[in-house]
Write a protein that binds this DNA or RNA. Structure first.
Lengths: 196, 196
DNA sequence: TTTTGTTGATTGGTCAGTCAATAAAAAATA
DNA sequence: TATTTTTTATTGACTGACCAATCAACAAAA
């Protein structure tokens, strides 16, 4: 039985600690010491494994993105029809794991930071493109191309908007009503199409 | 002719400088020196008039809010029917003056900061409530209460979402397509209602 | 004995906020 | 009007705190 090195363990712990710290503070200006402290190690060690703060933050964002992507694939795999694919793609963003004060705050903070960091901006664009294409895979069978495209755009904007607005409220996030709002908008668009 | 004191002049200049600095950097971590420098004064003077950085930032947010409010009143006054009131309330958010990279970045940064600062959070809630009620004044004559409420919620979230997504793109903001997207969503909802 | 893991101490830089000093304008006084 | 006094406007220089990043040293495994 090969003993694992400490590196992956520490990296994971530090990334988790970073999410927690960012979520609590609500922004990216958390100190390496704070993050390292939460992970139970010294700040020197965080530097040892990640080199610089930017890298740790970037890795953290990548982690968030990867988790969302994983959940998304899983949800889509379970959906059998185009219509359920759309709903699945929407629901993932408001799942128990994603739609938490901590995660929401982190996403938001990264959005802001993306204006400074080209690397982050690139990552967020990847996410945007993926969401769009996932939505499109369900929408194109139901709507003509231009409408489908516009619907996907609207849904994506709605999701981001609900995230940002959620950040202003206090108390536990209400995923159900958020989903209902998006679904309602989608239903309108689909019904609208059928009329003609 | 009473000579005006310098105070209001400096305050205005510093607030403008703050917006410019925040917009350029894309976040609130701008230095007092930077802001003061843009306004052509020393950082000591900025402290003299505003006391602390927080206060300057708060005043800046208040300024942004007041301007939006002013534009909104003007736009609503020119609208004669409920339907045009809704469109006016939407369009203001994407007007030449509001929907600029600089202003968008500042709004976004303030949203994030609001998670730390209760005072900012309160201000943003005022804005949210105002937008909601302005939208409702146009929506209630056209939709039953619960649908109107939901539509207002959706429109508000869409606007915020389009702001945040806009911040990720580069190049000039495309107000026209943003408005079209929101209007399209609204049209769907109104048509949807008529069907029943 | 080499590699891996870990830290305390240190450094260099940045920045908010303070303060004493100065200049300029206004008001009060002679 | 000419003068002193007070108020307003402004700054350079400084301080105290904080923090990312480095490094030499130590411990523990391999």
């Amino acid at each position: 039985m090969p003993k694992l090195g400490m590196e992956p363990v520490r990296r994971k712990a530090l990334i988790d600690a970073a999410i927690s710290a960012i979520g609590e503070r609500g922004s990216l200006d958390v100190t390496m010491s704070d993050i390292a402290g939460r992970a139970g190690v010294s700040s020197a060690l965080a530097h040892h494994y990640f080199g610089a703060k930017d890298e740790l933050l970037l890795a953290t964002m990548r982690h968030l993105l990867a988790e969302l992507n994983f959940d998304m694939r899983q949800a889509l795999a379970a959906a059998s029809s185009p219509r359920t694919r759309i709903s699945a793609a929407i629901a993932v963003n408001f799942s128990e794991k994603q739609f938490r004060a901590e995660t929401i705050a982190a996403w938001l903070a990264f959005y802001v930071e993306a204006q400074k960091s080209a690397a982050l901006r690139r990552l967020l664009r990847v996410y945007a493109r993926r969401l769009h294409s996932n939505l499109m895979s369900g929408l194109t069978p139901l709507l003509p191309q231009p409408q489908a495209d516009r619907a996907a755009e609207a849904i994506a904007a709605l999701i981001d908007g609900l995230y940002i607005r959620r950040a202003l409220k206090n108390g536990a996030p209400d995923a159900a009503s958020a989903i209902a709002l998006v679904e309602d908008c989608l239903a309108s668009k689909l019904a609208d199409q059928k009329m003609h």
